[in-house]
Amino acid sequence: MSDSVNVIVAELHTLRDYLRWATSRFQEEGLFYGHGADNAWDEAVLLVMPSLHLPWESSPDLLNARLTPSERRRLVEVIERRIRERVPAAYITGRAAFAGLEFIVNEHVLVPRSPLAETIAQEFQPWLQQYPLRILDLCTGSGCIGIACAATFTDAEVVLSDISPEAIAVAEQNITLHRLQDQVSAVESDLFANLQGERFDLIVSNPPYVNAEDLAAMPAEFHTEPALALGSGEDGLDFTRRLLREAADHLNPGGVLVVEVGNSWPALEAAFPDLGFTWLEFESGGHGVFVLTEEQLRLQREDLQ
């Protein structure tokens, strides 16, 4: 252990000490926050608490708890790794929160952060006209969106789909973590390739949608995430175009498609000006999520080809 680490471990003793020190170090090094936190203090909480096997929202009484020497050394290690490698806290702890639930994550999946958590909490109202008995989470990654849907619609069958076998492995871990094996399944598939003949009442997707220019300009933290899950061609819409062409064949009558396209929404509007997207608004922040019905997609099928 280096002399500098020895000094820190000798001088900092409580949970409060390490949260404060991490916050100062993050500020000093100019880290980027965009994976569950938007400031240095919250980032410190996301990193420090799971590293001590404590809930993120623990009692404030714990702040003055003294840490063991091994715990203090561990915190110095993870805090300095966050700075040195510019890797999101969730990849260091292996845990992330979404829609009030905890998920296993690693470098094969995006860190959960979609504004769709708010839409799930609202049960996709007022767009869903009937209780969804079958739900598909397309480009599922960790499975967070589909599993949150399963927790909301407890009588629904939920399918998680992703082109990445590594992502499917993470999603399956999260199915087990939440004990949803009887309700949720995972399928490796490029779009609908391995879902032929299957139809759903609700298809939700947070696909790759970052355009080439934005992808190149992203802070270092984002470049530790799988590029396959972020970039989608020059305008960010390569995958979404395919999805729009094929979705109607996999939605039941009255079904709904909900897709996040982020900053690529103006390009999508320009590409399909007559499609009639409904763009969602979020109280908690976020943008670029549209809703289309099965009827809209079916009637506009020719324009989508």
Rank of each mutant, 00 (worst) to 15 (best):
M1Q: 14
V5S: 14
I8R: 14
L12I: 11
H13L: 15
L19K: 13
A22V: 12
T23P: 03
F26D: 05
F26S: 06
Q27G: 14
E28T: 09
E29I: 01
F32T: 13
H35E: 12
G36T: 07
N39T: 05
E43I: 10
A44C: 10
V45M: 01
L47C: 07
V48F: 01
P50Y: 01
S51D: 00
L52P: 07
S59F: 08
L62Q: 02
L62N: 04
L63I: 07
A65D: 10
L75C: 07
I79H: 06
R82F: 06
I83W: 07
I83T: 10
A89K: 02
Y91A: 00
R95A: 08
A96R: 00
E102R: 03
V105W: 01
N106P: 00
V109Y: 00
V109S: 02
V111Y: 02
V111N: 02
A121P: 03
E123K: 15
L128W: 02
Q129P: 03
Y131T: 14
D137M: 03
L138R: 02
C139T: 06
G141A: 09
G141R: 00
S142D: 04
G143Q: 04
C144Q: 06
I145W: 00
C149Y: 04
A151D: 09
A151N: 05
T152Y: 00
F153A: 00
S164C: 14
I168S: 00
A169I: 07
E172W: 05
I175T: 03
I175H: 02
L177N: 02
L180W: 01
Q181F: 05
S185V: 15
V187I: 13
S189F: 11
S189Y: 08
A193V: 13
L195R: 01
Q196I: 11
G197W: 12
E198G: 09
D201K: 06
V204F: 06
S205N: 05
N206R: 05
P208T: 05
V210P: 04
E213F: 09
D214W: 12
M218G: 12
E221A: 11
F222Q: 04
T224F: 11
A227C: 11
G231C: 10
S232R: 04
G236N: 06
G236W: 08
F239C: 13
L244R: 01
L244E: 05
R245A: 14
A248Y: 08
D249K: 13
G254M: 08
L257T: 09
V261S: 05
G262D: 08
W265Q: 13
P266M: 14
A267F: 13
L275P: 00
T278S: 14
T278Y: 13
G285S: 14
H287K: 11
H287I: 09
L297T: 03
Q300K: 14
E302H: 03
D303T: 10
D303G: 11
Q305M: 15
